[in-house]
Simulated assay, not measured.
Amino acid sequence: MTDQTLRTTAPAQVPVAPVRSLRARDRDDRTNRPGMVVLLLCSVAVLLPLYATVTMAFKTTRQSVDGNAFSLPSPLSVDGFVEAWRLTNFPRGFTISVLVTLVTVVGTVVLSSLAAYAISRNWDHRFFRWSFFYLLAAMFLPFPVLALSQVKLTGMVGLANPGGVALLHVMFQLSFSVMLFTAFLRSVPEELEESARLDGASTWQVFRRIVFPLLAPMSATVAIFAFLASWNDFMMPSLIIADATQQTLPVLQSVFQTQFSSNYNVAFASYLMAMAPAIVVYLFTQRWVMAGVTQGAIK
Score class of each variant (00 low, 15 high):
T2M: 09
L6I: 05
L6M: 04
T8G: 07
T9E: 12
P11R: 03
A12N: 01
V16F: 06
S21M: 00
S21H: 04
D26H: 01
D29I: 00
D29P: 01
R30Q: 02
R30Y: 00
R33D: 00
R33F: 00
P34G: 04
L41S: 12
S43Y: 10
A45G: 11
P49C: 10
P49K: 09
T53S: 12
K59E: 15
T61D: 12
Q63C: 08
D66E: 15
G67T: 12
F70N: 12
S74Y: 10
T88Q: 02
N89R: 06
N89E: 04
F94Q: 01
T101I: 13
T101W: 10
T104R: 10
T108H: 14
A118W: 11
H125Q: 05
H125Y: 07
W130A: 04
F132P: 13
M139G: 14
F143E: 06
F143N: 09
L148A: 08
K152F: 03
T154G: 00
M156G: 09
G158W: 02
G158N: 00
N161R: 02
A166I: 04
L167V: 13
H169M: 08
M171G: 15
F172G: 13
Q173C: 09
M179T: 02
F184C: 02
S187K: 03
E190K: 14
E191Y: 11
L192M: 04
G200L: 02
T203I: 08
P213T: 15
P213R: 14
M218K: 07
A220H: 05
T221I: 11
L228Y: 07
N232Q: 14
N232Y: 08
S238I: 01
L239P: 01
L239T: 03
I241N: 01
A242K: 05
A242P: 04
Q247V: 01
Q247E: 01
Q247H: 02
Q247L: 05
Q253P: 08
F256A: 11
Q257K: 12
N263C: 12
Y271D: 13
R287C: 06
T294N: 14
